[in-house]
Design a protein around this nucleic acid. Structure first.
Length: 273
DNA sequence: TAGGCCATCTGGTCCT
DNA sequence: AGGACCAGATGGCCTA
């Protein structure tokens, strides 16, 4: 048997090696504890005690823990290989999940860079949700404006598309988050649920989820302190004019769209304190 | 040192 | 039967 130190080390560069220890040890432990509950009982204090087991003891324990099917096989090495196989699949699954999560982070309107800590998984999901809601809201508002402009005998109704740049309201191309980092993010507040923005109070709990997501981890190292990762202004700016956009989207906060309450992210909200 | 986040293992359940 | 998915447990790393 090897020492415990090799087993204790976490996130090994080559997990497969550790699997051999883990599978062997935990298998015995699980077998010993039986299927009493779903919780594992392989506390650190228990594992060493099993190290003294003889080969025959271990085998008998393995037999007890083996599934109905495994009992037919009875082979320690076979059980181990199966366990390794399952572990490997699970690792791959989680790895794929993380890859997808990274892909999601890349398209999020969030400052990417070496000095910015990577969004946590939960923050990424919450941010993505808000972003989607915001884009949906913007799209709806845009549709409304279009119908308002072109549906009322050509009257602009006080709007100046030239200043706004009609297409500038289309928002950033989802695949190009960098665009949203520019002076014209084209998003009112990509990090906030539209409703939260509509209140314009920033008192919505959601604000904490986006502007203060793990602030203690240095997410907000950008100069735009207090304004969220995107910068100090989420208002539209007239292309080429340098003037604030006069459009209704910038003047009148978008209505509807259920807000994300604190309930959906209690920890993040409380984290913002 | 505590708390947050994460990777990994593992057993159970569901689906094909 | 095998694989995917899920949730609980565990332990390491990092930051305030």
């Amino acid at each position: 048997m090897d020492s415990d130190t090799s087993r204790v080390s976490s996130r090994p560069s080559s997990p497969e090696v550790d699997d051999i220890f883990m599978s062997t040890l935990k298998k015995s432990v699980h077998g010993f504890s039986g299927a009493v509950s779903s919780t594992q009982s392989d506390s650190p204090s228990e594992i060493p005690s099993l190290r003294g087991l003889s080969a025959s003891d271990e085998e008998s324990l393995s037999l007890r823990m083996a599934s109905k099917k495994d009992r037919k096989l009875l082979s320690e090495s076979e059980l181990q290989s199966i366990r390794l196989k399952i572990n490997s699949r699970e690792r791959k699954r989680m790895h794929d999940l993380n890859v997808a999560m990274d892909g999601l982070r890349e398209v999020m309107p969030y400052a990417h860079g070496p000095s910015v800590r990577k969004l946590s998984k939960i923050a990424t999901l919450l941010l993505a949700r808000n972003y989607i809601l915001m884009l949906s809201n913007s799209l709806e508002e845009m549709k409304r404006l279009v119908s308002e402009i072109y549906g009322s005998s050509g009257h602009h109704g006080g709007f100046h598309p030239s200043a706004c740049g009609t297409m500038t309201h289309a928002g950033p191309v989802p695949g190009h988050p960098a665009a949203s980092h520019a002076s014209h993010p084209a998003v009112h507040h990509p990090l906030l649920p539209p409703a939260a923005v509509s209140t314009a109070s920033l008192s919505a709990p959601s604000i904490s989820a986006v502007t203060s997501v793990r602030p203690h981890h240095g997410l907000l190292k950008a100069p735009a302190a207090g304004a969220g990762p995107l910068g100090s202004s989420f208002q539209h700016w007239g292309v080429g004019t340098g003037m604030p956009c006069p459009c209704s989207m910038c003047q009148v906060p978008p209505p509807h769209v259920s807000s994300m309450s604190t309930v959906t992210m209690p920890r993040l909200a409380s984290d913002s304190k």
